[in-house]
Design a protein around this nucleic acid. Structure first.
Length: 677
DNA sequence: TTAATGGTATTTTTT
DNA sequence: ATACCATTAA
């Protein structure tokens, strides 16, 4: 049950101000999520707003899930029908209904980075520019940036003499055309095309404006221009828009987020109500003190005065370890003893890091110690080759125009259709303007294809056509997939092509997990279709239906995640690891961009996740690219007042330091000798 | 057409 | 350390 009396006066003002625009500037731990959830509960329970009319948008799946859970606690099934989703899921929801108006088919594929890169490479190949080798990643990055700024291929212009930017400008139109010919849209299109749909089709806009009469946006400081426009269009009619955010926690500048948006909100919405939340309910005094000191080093910010009624609590532990392995063992040991001695549960503990690559040693040590853990984000599972290959089969069946997927499976499992043949067919299909899939069935018409190869291509085409028909018929999807994978000999292929049979077995299990996850989706959703399943998988929005994952979530496990995914969450015990120069702040921000402030905000986000105790770690050495490398302490460590910190060196680090001292002494003696002799 | 070899880049962060 | 290429041998 929810109770408005549990809110402080400012929070209550925000929760009950339901009509008209509202800006909530909420410091870390000031009960932001509580305000949003209570506000929704208030709308449903006291204002009798139908849940269908409520929209709450977040940035990450994790945050969306968290909010859904909290809503369930507050209003139970009475909240059924409201939309709590990420920006991207909202985009799909709107596009699925009316994307035909933009010339795409309803069964469109959603392309993630690797598919996008495939198209970029193709477009680059077509330019026949053999002189320069352009980096597809940076081209894609620039096109993505243009899309986030809502620039169409016609509007995108180079800003300078940067050659790779000029190339991005040159191939953006082709890239977009390729996407369309594949009946595919990329992550950025999920927002950009939605905006276009709402802008060009007033009746569509009116429909959604009517549906979403009350809109809430969490982490508003992270809104980029396209997301901003999407929200303003939806809210334009009713103007019941509530945005919540904190400029000190703006950490998506690299994705085009613009802090100005939150600072300008009052300007955008005249007569808007502003509420400041400055009392922190989350952390102990020491933790909050440290956070305040660190963030005060940023100059361009709305100064807030976060305060707490709680006592100072324990000091912050700073651990110096010899290397990344010792860092991991020490953290895991501490987690073990804390959970044993202080009756803290594993679920109360989180390990936070700047880059996903840092999770490895911690995973190893946790597994070694037999401690359950959940790894958030990192894309590990669906990025695996065997998973992508098997999903490509499903994607091709769901959308035969999806050429990136088709090209992936045309010779997987190996069926003797090699690169040259594929090239010929691809070229012919482009010249004739015939879709690749159809071209496969007409291989006889293509010059230079031998009869033997033609038969193989024909067989593949027939197999695929049969499967497309098969999947279109009613029936249990997971069963069909299982039968399909057996038929094409997926398992055998893996055992055959991989030398290490243990690795092959792992990969086979991963593929089985894909089928399981599809089965789970089918059993939980009445209208489970292939495109819908693939959509969930691509948006990584899937663990809401997968039974297995649900259990893992409920399980008492240590959480491992990046600082970015940790925003909006809190844990009694936090380990903030890898506090070294070139990690936090990250190398890229030191040498290339000017976003040290954003790195500092990340640090601030990390510190403020902790409720009762914070441990910060750093290493003297770290293994990078397979080589041990010397590390230096992060500049942010100096920004935490000494008296809040309890410094501890781990055995290995001490030994290393003594070695260092000895070496220095040795050098000294050598020097003396030299001077004397 | 496939397998093997050697060279290179790879590590922000999310959807 | 390793995944991903490009080139070359079979």
């Amino acid at each position: 049950m929810f109770d408005l009396k549990s809110l402080n006066p400012q929070q209550r003002t925000a929760a009950t101000h339901t009509e008209g625009p509202l800006l909530v500037l909420a410091g870390a731990g000031s009960g932001k999520t509580k305000v949003i959830t209570c506000r929704i509960a208030h709308l449903i329970e006291n204002k009798e707003v139908p849940p269908e009319n409520i929209l709450a948008v977040t940035f990450t799946n994790k945050a969306a899930r968290e909010m859904q859970e909290r809503m369930k606690e507050l209003v139970g099934s009475r909240g059924k029908g409201m939309t709590i989703s990420t920006f991207h899921s909202l985009g799909v929801k709107i596009l699925r209904q009316d994307i035909r108006k933009l010339g795409y088919k309803k069964n469109f594929s959603i392309y993630s980075t690797s598919d996008q890169l495939g198209l970029i490479r193709q477009a680059l190949r077509e330019t026949n520019d053999t002189q320069k080798k352009f980096d597809p990643d940076s081209i894609l990055w620039k096109i993505s940036g243009a899309k986030n700024a809502l620039l169409t291929p016609e509007q995108y212009r180079p800003t300078g003499f940067d050659e790779s930017e000029q190339m991005a400008v040159a191939i953006y139109p082709r890239y977009q055309a390729l996407l369309k010919s594949c009946n595919a849209i990329d992550f950025d299109d999920l927002i950009m095309l939605t905006v276009r749909l709402l802008r060009d089709f007033p009746e569509v806009l009116a429909k959604w404006q009517q549906q979403f009469r009350y809109i809430m946006v969490d982490e508003y400081q992270d809104t980029n221009p396209s997301q901003y426009l999407l929200i303003s269009m939806l809210a334009a009619q009713n103007r019941n828009i509530c945005v919540v955010g904190d400029d000190d926690q703006s950490i998506y500048g690299w994705r085009g987020a613009d802090v100005e948006k939150i600072l300008n909100f009052e300007h955008d919405y005249h007569g808007c109500k502003v509420v400041m939340l400055e009392q922190n309910y989350r952390s102990t005094g020491n933790i909050l003190d440290a956070a305040n000191h660190v963030i005060s080093n940023n100059t361009k910010r709305k100064v807030k005065a976060l305060w707490t009624e709680s006592g100072p609590g324990r000091p912050i532990d700073l651990i110096v370890a010899a290397d990344d392995e010792e860092e991991a063992t020490t953290v895991v040991e501490r987690i073990e003893t804390t959970c044993f001695r202080d009756k803290v549960s594993y679920g109360d503990c989180a390990i936070l890091y700047r880059t996903n690559a840092q999770s490895r040693p911690f995973e190893e040590q946790l597994r070694f110690a037999g401690i359950p853990y959940v790894l958030i984000g990192g894309m590990q599972f669906y990025e695996r080759k065997e998973v992508k290959d098997s999903l490509a089969w499903l994607r091709t069946i769901a959308n035969p125009e999806d050429e990136q997927s088709l090209l992936r499976i045309i010779n997987f499992p190996k069926r003797g259709i090699g690169e040259t043949t594929i090239l010929k067919i691809n070229q012919w299909s482009m010249e004739q303007g015939i879709p690749l899939f159809e071209a496969l069935g007409r291989a006889a018409e293509i010059d230079g294809i031998t009869e033997a190869v033609r038969a193989k291509v024909q067989a593949f085409h027939d197999l695929l056509s049969g499967e497309i028909a098969n999947f279109a018929a009613p029936g249990h999807l997971a069963d069909k997939v299982d039968r399909l994978f057996r038929k094409i000999g997926l398992e055998e292929e893996l055992y055959r092509t991989i030398d290490d049979q243990a690795t092959a077995r792992r990969k086979v299990e991963n593929i089985e997990q894909v089928i399981n996850s599809l089965a789970g989706f089918e059993s939980s959703s009445a209208k489970a279709t292939l495109p819908l399943f693939l959509e969930k998988v691509t948006l990584m929005d899937e663990d809401r239906f997968s039974g297995k994952d649900k259990k893992e979530h409920g399980r008492d496990a240590v959480t491992l995640m990046s600082l970015h995914s940790s925003k909006g969450l809190e844990f009694p015990m936090v380990w903030l690891v890898g506090l070294e120069e070139e990690i936090l702040p990250h190398k890229k921000s030191i040498y290339e961009d000017f976003s040290i402030d954003e790195e500092r905000r990340l640090m601030y986000v990390g510190i403020t996740r902790a409720r009762r105790h914070l441990t910060i770690t750093r290493c003297l050495q770290r293994k990078q690219y397979g080589k041990m490398q010397e590390r230096h302490p992060s500049r942010f460590l100096e920004e935490i007042p000494e008296q809040l910190v309890n410094l501890q060196q781990v055995a290995g680090a001490q030994a290393l330091n003594e070695d260092e001292a000895e070496k220095m002494a040795g050098d000294f003696f050598a020097k003396m000798k030299g001077m004397l002799g």
